[in-house]
């Protein structure tokens, strides 16, 4: 690992993103629109307070998963990845460069979406707001890390996009957003206990419901962080210097 190569890679990815204003717009506006819609559907019921925060944990995960898996696949198909791997660039530098760039983007997205949920839609948050943002950023990094891993198994951009429902939807169904995790059938409950998005949603719930959720959030965050590290390590194994 080399700090300079990691940082210039992160800067390069951010510069590429910046030249694509529409993608940045979508990344910032779409979560707000969906949260707004959610608040509107559950108007005059307490459901938004219960679920709104969970949604804040799901968006950054989904969006970053798609953006990262497509961006990395583009590196593979354009030949830039093969070229980079003939230079002193380390696989870890490459993975961390991407993770850092999308984490920075995630901070922006999380701040905008959280502010919209709290100040426009009136989401009640019992715990400290910064923890909500911190968990959202961690979820986004998780999405990036899994996206990097998934792109290793995709040959085309069509496949990369199909990985979104394959990797993300099962987690979405089991994360406790639709049916509370303790009410899931036994087997599904156990699967849910392993999947990272469950902890993303748990952490978000703790922050909204609990006045001082520190230790609960830390526990969930620890499990998400483990998943991030495991995905980055596995993902870097899919980067091959030599190919057939």
């Amino acid at each position: 690992m080399n700090a300079r190569r990691t940082l210039v890679t992160a800067a390069r990815v951010l510069t590429q993103l910046r030249s694509d204003r529409r993608t940045i717009g979508l990344m910032l506006v779409v979560p707000c629109v969906l949260i707004g819609l959610f608040a509107w559907i559950f108007d005059a019921t307490p459901a938004f307070d219960a679920l709104g925060a969970s949604l804040l944990g799901v968006f950054p995960f989904v969006v970053m998963f798609i953006v990262t898996s497509v961006a990395t696949l583009r590196e593979r198909t354009s030949g830039t990845l093969e070229r980079l791997l003939t230079t002193p660039m380390g696989k870890g530098d490459f993975m961390m460069g991407y993770a850092l760039a999308f984490a920075a983007m995630a901070v922006l997205q999380a701040v905008v979406a959280t502010a919209f949920a709290v100040y426009v839609c009136g989401l009640d948050v019992a715990g400290p707001l910064w923890q909500l943002v911190a968990v959202a950023v961690l979820d986004a990094v998780l999405g990036s890390a899994l996206g990097l891993l998934a792109s290793g198994f995709a040959r085309t951009e069509f496949q990369a996009v199909q990985f979104m429902p394959a990797f993300v939807l099962p987690q979405f169904l089991l994360c406790g957003l639709i049916v509370s995790r303790d009410r899931l059938p036994d087997v599904l409950g156990r699967v849910s206990d392993v999947l990272p998005l469950s902890y993303a949603v748990d952490a978000m719930k703790s922050v909204t419901l609990d006045r001082s959720p520190g230790s609960d959030v830390a526990g969930s965050a620890g499990i998400i962080a483990l998943w991030v590290v495991a995905s980055l390590v596995l993902g870097s194994l899919t980067l091959r210097r030599r190919t057939a």
Partner: peptide, 29 residues
């Protein structure tokens, strides 16, 4: 990796970066 320069048949540079940003990135690497 420092001593060999490789240019693939189809150009392997970033289309969404300027010429300067591309070359500076590889310089930094």
């Amino acid at each position: 990796r420092h001593r060999v320069g490789y240019v693939t048949q189809s150009p392997s540079v970033y289309e969404d970066l300027t010429v300067r940003a591309n070359v500076r990135y590889f310089a930094a690497i």
